[in-house]
Nucleic acid binder design. Structure first.
Lengths: 337, 337
DNA sequence: ACGATTCATTGACACGTGTAAGCGAGGGTC
DNA sequence: GACCCTCGCTTACACGTGTCAATGAATCGT
């Protein structure tokens, strides 16, 4: 309770040196004790003294200093898109974060904000992450990957549709989704198939491959239909539907599918009689509308699985297979097709 | 292209010392140039030499070392819940992250994984974040807040229902939502009101206040109804509906409301004739079912707004008001009530 | 021509941590 | 009693950066 005169100072954060001073030992001893070092033997009484002092001061180690000294971090960088990614992938990313946390990694979200690949790679590299998991909204060059690796990243993982040389590619091939949808529709006798392409910015990453996947199956029968995520846009599309001459539609997503199906029903069209509607992602919500929405069910890897894959890549960068397909898609027929 | 013998070394990451060496200047000069220091004047030729060298080596500064030296970071810590938080709040958090990034903060997600308040506070403090934004899944004590502040946090913001001494409370009072819903139902003549409470773990944070809010308005007329987010659970609840003697239900959420409404309709009940159904969050999807779902529209602050509030708190910790209400809720009648 | 000023650059320290190497004391062994 | 362990702890350095104070060179003023 010294009544020293320092009201403005915001009470400096205690360091291990403060702990050492209070415990009457050297700083090294403090470090050994608090890290439970096995190589060095410290007597039990000393251990207690140190622990008491640390407790009393409310000492908390400084992560930056620690990783500076260690020469590496446990940071996994997860570039965030500000895109209205669907519920399925939101949930997946959440789970992934959680699983990584459990493996003692620190997840850093880093908005990439219209940066170029070069700029993004440099910004990311500053944090010296041990791994980078890019969903693909930034297209990285081999040079960018090299920059990251040089900065200490032991795993650079891209989940986009296309692999990048030097990076581990965990391919989540969205075109598979479009292909399954189209195949299902073709199988049921449809030939003129519309594919809803969201107008929302940033979704091209998902929507383009899905469209291409459909094209690869149904070829010339495919017609791209831009549509925004709003009742107005869906109504506008539905209003001109009869003039389009389509007998089926694959709507990118269950949400878009629901939106469009509602508008089509309101327009007086029968489903699946006049037009078959197909969604994707198999959201629970999609089963509530009538007719029930047919969809493409996507089997995403669990967050645990992917996190462990990252972990393995970090431990043994060489052992990991360079390319791996992660998603499997299968059409589920309900009532709208 | 020296054929030196170091194949195993993973090419050490270049430091500012390497840049200095290559440019033939001192490390200090490098620092001044790359940080565009204004206090010190460096000749233009030297600037170019340094920039060239940095470029050539692919130099990227080491964020940890930098913030160690600086004594502070630009990290904003955002503890993540692994709870199935709704689309509304997911979008809000995404936007917040993006806005913070634009203000040059680094957002770190930190799963709190069943930690106690003490443990969480210590773990968070290790990163020396300049601000912590807690949604309230961890209840912090005044002592925890003090720990964080001592570790350099200039703003500790809680968005839970209850303020914490020492922290800036940006209250997002969920009880308001429940209150509006109940008031709307009462106003329309309903007296026996069920309130769906999700069984999913982690959602109590939102659901409990919403329930209590309803209670504060409709008192004894309220009955809590546990339900999981699945068709089976909704069907089970619907099956015993007639025996409950309720004439209205507030379903926590538009998603839960849709699920239950579907089940009630399938059970042969008329909506809103036999039972009025009220959701919350005003999701676009909720307007697709028939009858259209009445809901409580929640006005969340924009991510930009909140981010700027955080920024101001960081710059002038004293100037910020200690407590502030952030959400406003208003009932929207559609067809289900 | 010589001290006074400006200009461009550098040497040196501090930030907080982990750990290899060293060191004194105590206790055995011959 | 000289020797060598082992035990318990400390001294000293390195990690990569920013910045203050100092230094030398060049320019200026008279």
């Amino acid at each position: 309770m010294s009544q020293s005169s320092k009201p403005p100072q915001p009470a400096p954060v205690p360091t291990s040196a403060d702990v050492a001073r209070l415990a009457g030992v050297s700083r090294a001893t403090v470090s050994y004790v608090l890290n439970n070092a096995e190589a060095v033997r410290i007597s039990e009484p000393t251990r207690r003294k140190v622990r008491r002092a640390a407790e009393e001061l409310g000492y908390v180690p400084h992560a930056a200093a620690r990783s500076l000294r260690a020469g590496h971090t446990r940071i996994v960088l997860l570039p965030t898109s500000h895109v209205p990614i669907g519920p399925l992938y939101s949930a997946f990313l959440n789970e992934l974060q959680w699983s990584l946390r459990r493996l003692d990694y620190t997840v850093v979200q880093y908005g990439s904000l219209g940066l170029s690949g070069d700029e993004a790679a440099r910004a990311w590299a500053e944090l010296r992450p041990v791994a980078v998991i890019s969903l693909g909204e930034i297209t990285l060059s081999a040079h960018n990957v090299a920059t990251l690796k040089r900065a200490g990243a032991r795993a650079v993982i891209t989940m986009g549709p296309v692999g990048v040389p030097g990076a581990h590619a965990l391919v989540m091939d969205q075109s598979e989704v479009g292909a399954r949808a189209a195949a299902h529709l073709v199988e049921r006798g449809h030939r003129r198939i519309g594919v809803v392409v969201p107008q929302e910015e940033g979704l091209e990453l998902f929507s383009t491959p899905r469209l291409e996947g459909a094209r690869s199956v149904a070829g010339a029968g495919i017609e791209a239909l831009p549509m925004a995520y709003s009742e107005e846009s869906a109504a506008a599309l539905a209003a001109r539907w009869r003039s389009l001459g389509l007998d089926a539609v694959f709507a990118y997503n269950d949400e878009y599918a629901m939106l469009l199906m509602r508008a089509l029903l309101d327009e007086g069209l029968r489903i699946p009689g006049d037009v078959a509607v197909m969604g994707a992602d198999d959201l629970l919500i999609g089963r509530l509308l009538r007719p029930r929405l047919s969809t493409v069910q996507i089997e995403l890897p669990t967050g645990d699985h992917l996190a462990e894959l990252v972990d393995r890549a970090v431990r043994e960068p060489s052992e990991i297979t360079q390319r791996q397909d992660l998603i499997s898609a299968v059409a589920v027929r309900r009532e709208s097709t």
